[in-house]
């Protein structure tokens, strides 16, 4: 879940009707870049300022690139190597790691678990965040700011703290909402924490920790919808819902797609919630999700090759999703209006 947060921090919300996408401003290279600065003056000073702008851009991006190399590209390269060479393992090296990883009897059930989880979590997140962001915009600036703060707060409780909090909230004998749980028909903790309810429990946990930051981003995107378009829609007699559906949502469609893909990649790698809930409540297993299975391969079977192979599979899927975002949706293209 933290990967979606780090990506969210990179993309700040645009203000007003700025033509330049601030994300593009952080990407180095000729062409795009701080075009606002370059528009301001005549040719020679413009070239110098463009050079300064480029240098500053590189300065801002270098720390990220260093960290990306150390903790992103480096481990990726090692995983590719480990999946074939199986360093330190007793299994033979070669492509056997891939076949062991994918032919294990727990692999397909883990894929099914994660797929079912995504089928609930993704729509819940997207629809929930958009509705809440629209609501925040409707209630006006002051109340809206308070609401945004309230939504972001649950995101402060992540990982193991979040699992413990949710365990207490959902255990009928311990929960402050015990009477509501019993009204819903759950009298014992075992009835709540059944393996068939797991996807709902994890979706709730993931939603609670993630929705706040996305509301902030989608709200920012909504603020970028030109006022005159909304005025025009209102003059034409559109209701709130019609304005949202026909004017606002198309205008922020790129951000919605961005949220969908970030949520997808984060959800695909779910690990903490099933791992901790298994330890707490003995429900699920140590190989419920794909990431858990990878950990099990590595540290219970000592099979780093299979674990690397599984991780690379997850990477390929997430990279395909990111590629879709970048090239098909052209999310990082700047619009020079």
């Amino acid at each position: 879940m933290s990967s979606s947060r780090s990506k969210a921090l990179v993309t700040a919300a645009p203000h007003g009707g700025a033509a330049t996408d601030p994300v593009a401003a952080t990407m180095p290279g000729p062409g795009p870049g701080p075009s606002a600065a370059s528009r301001l003056s005549a040719s020679a000073p413009r070239a110098r300022r463009r050079g300064q702008g480029q240098a500053f851009g590189w300065l801002c991006v270098t720390p990220y690139l260093v960290l990306l190399g150390l903790f992103g590209i480096g481990p990726l390269a090692y995983a590719c190597y480990a999946s074939i060479a199986n360093p330190g393992g007793s299994q033979p090296s070669g492509l056997g790691g891939y076949s062991r990883a994918f032919s294990d009897f727990r692999f397909l059930p883990a894929v099914a678990d994660v797929a079912e989880f995504m089928a609930i979590y993704l729509p819940m997140m997207v629809v929930g965040v958009i509705l809440l962001a629209l609501a925040v915009q409707e209630v006006g600036p002051r109340l809206g700011a308070t609401m945004r703060l309230m939504y972001v707060l649950p995101g402060a409780v992540v990982g193991s703290a979040s699992v413990l909090l949710w365990y207490v909230m959902l255990e009928p004998t311990l929960s402050p909402f015990g009477s509501q749980l019993r009204a819903m028909g759950f009298t014992t903790g075992a009835e709540v924490f059944q393996s068939s309810n797991l996807i709902w429990i994890f979706a709730l946990m993931a939603f609670a920790t993630g929705f706040g930051q996305w509301v902030v981003i989608i709200f920012g995107a909504l603020q970028g919808v030109p006022e005159d378009q909304i005025e025009a829609a209102r003059l034409d007699g559109c209701t709130w819902w019609q304005t949202a559906r026909y004017v606002k949502l198309p205008a922020i469609s790129k951000y919605v797609l961005y949220m969908v893909i970030m949520t997808f990649t984060a959800g695909l790698q779910i690990f903490v919630e099933p791992q901790l809930l298994y330890g707490l409540e003995n429900v699920g297993s140590q190989w419920w999700s794909l990431n858990q299975l990878g950990l099990y391969y590595a540290f219970n079977n000592g099979d780093f090759a299979a674990a690397s192979a599984l991780s690379l599979l997850l990477l390929v899927v997430c990279a395909a999703a990111a590629g879709l975002l970048i090239f098909k949706a052209r999310f990082f293209d700047t619009e020079v209006a």
């Binding site: 492509l95 891939y98 099979d303």
Partner: peptide, 15 residues
């Protein structure tokens, strides 16, 4: 291709 090649290999973990 790699998966096809290695699907015939017998792999036993020795835990």
């Amino acid at each position: 291709a790699g998966l096809l090649i290695t699907s015939c290999s017998s792999t036993t973990s020795s835990v």
